[in-house]
Design a protein around this nucleic acid. Structure first.
Lengths: 84, 84
DNA sequence: ATTTTATTTAGACATTTGCCTAAACATTGA
DNA sequence: TCAATGTTTAGGCAAATGTCTAAATAAAAT
């Protein structure tokens, strides 16, 4: 839960998640959309992975990142306790 | 949206929200439940108020904090885009 | 009036965060 | 094998964060 909220508490990381809604993408393709350096984006991706918001698979020299929507359910569950 | 995620990115603040599910409470009553100093809790309450997750009304020398569930809908809306 | 009680504001300090550049690692292609 | 490409790791730095104590503010009680 901590890692989840931490990962979401950054506009760049939230934008990465929104980008991945369109489908999996390589680290490089993701990095192209932002003005930050590749290492910076790599670090953001690492935090998203720690929160299990994304998964990564190595494909040759590329690393493909994919949204993991499973974790959203955990978050929704936490939020729903406030809806009653 | 930024203030919202920022406010949620702290276990003490999330615990305060959960405390307020049981009903409104004064700053002092909230602070009693934690090991932190009153100023620290006051600061957390300030961040929750900035995110509009809580409202506060002064009642005599007390300040009563109340959950504001309205903002949760905004968050649910953001999450929902990932569910399809 | 003065003191007590409730809360916030101010200022300091250590830790965490987000960014960078340089270097390392891993895979592909000449 | 050597060079090019894609990505991560390492290390450094400024800004933000979470905590504290001391002081200020405001209302209540004596």
């Amino acid at each position: 839960m901590n890692a989840l909220f931490k990962a979401l508490n950054d506009p760049t990381r939230r934008a990465i998640l929104e980008r991945l809604r369109a489908g999996p993408a390589t680290a490089g393709a993701i990095a192209e959309q932002f003005q930050f350096s590749a290492p910076t984006i790599s670090h953001h991706l690492d935090l998203l992975r720690q929160a299990e918001l994304v998964t990564s698979q190595k494909q040759g020299q590329f690393v493909v990142y994919t949204l993991n929507m499973t974790v959203f359910d955990e978050l929704l569950g936490w939020l729903y306790q406030f809806k009653s």
